[in-house]
């Protein structure tokens, strides 16, 4: 170890710089006063201020929040029920369902997007916020279920048995034993689902119709039409929000394991 460590540390440092350099540059330049150039000409907050007056952007933000809130609530409910239900199934069936849950996470998102779009078109459902929300529920359920299952497996079965010995019914066991123990994991899953939904571009891209622009769709069209300081500011804000969500989620999952 001692002998190779300097070279290894140098590459590691380079890798970390590579990971954080672009993010830092992006955030720094969101405060740059120059309009079109990358030359530094003083710090300003005016690009953040212009964001506040961009009506289309605010509407897209409202759409994004709406989609994220609804899809998170529904996916947490359904995903949670699935996780609890799976506990009572025979091992073989659990494994089959688990395989099915991993599938949506590994298949390319483009494919997920077109598959959902085709499905909605064939059902003659008009593409709009409803289809976007349904799409987000589809990819959020497996995330929630997998995260909750990880926690359920760590629970001591003796706790439930003790409650049963003391005369608790199955609802009481769930309500007073399982649920409180699961609570941090549930909040963790909620935050992850919320973040993933808020950040999703591809599934939204294919399942959204006119008038259903979410924040990532708006960011995409802004990027496509050219690099501007407003996008820098918006991007920096989005980075901050996702990092805060992840930080909070990790904090909740770590607690009382």
């Amino acid at each position: 170890m001692k002998r190779e460590s300097i070279g290894l540390k140098a590459v590691s440092l380079a890798a970390m710089l590579f990971l954080y350099g672009p993010i830092v540059v992006l955030v720094l330049y969101s405060f740059n006063a120059a309009h079109l150039s990358m030359a530094w000409s003083g710090a300003t907050l005016k690009w953040y201020a212009t964001l506040l007056y961009d009506g289309a952007l605010l509407a897209a933000t409202a759409n994004s929040l709406f989609v994220a809130v609804v899809s998170t609530i529904v996916a947490t409910g359904l995903g949670g029920l699935l996780a609890l239900g799976m506990e009572r199934m025979p091992h073989r069936r659990q494994q089959t369902i688990e395989g099915g849950l991993v599938l949506p996470l590994v298949i390319p998102e483009v494919m997920m997007g077109i598959a959902l779009m085709l499905f909605f078109v064939m059902l003659k459902m008009p593409l709009g916020l409803t289809t976007v929300i349904l799409g987000h529920i589809v990819f959020n359920i497996p995330l929630v279920t997998i995260m909750l299952r990880a926690r359920l497996r760590k629970l001591d079965p003796a706790l439930g048995e003790a409650a049963a010995d003391l005369g608790a019914g199955s609802w009481q066991i769930f309500r007073y034993v399982t649920l409180p123990l699961l609570r941090p994991a549930i909040w963790g899953a909620v935050l992850v689902a919320f973040t993933v939904s808020l950040d999703d571009f591809l599934v939204t891209f294919f399942t959204a119709g006119p008038g259903a622009t979410t924040l990532p769709l708006k960011v995409y069209s802004m990027i496509k039409s050219g690099v501007t300081p407003e996008i820098n500011a918006l991007s920096a804000l989005l980075l901050g929000i996702s990092m805060a969500c992840v930080g909070l989620s990790l904090h909740l999952q770590r607690r009382e394991v």
């Binding site: 672009p22 993010i23 540059v25 992006l26 330049y29 990358m38 950040d199 571009f201 990532p216 960011v219 995409y220 990027i223 690099v227 996008i231 820098n232 991007s235 989005l238 980075l239 996702s242 990092m243 992840v246």
Partner: peptide
Amino acid sequence: TNFLVRTYAWMI
């Protein structure tokens, strides 16, 4: 963090 944003950082 948002994939679009991270990719955009490289455009800059």
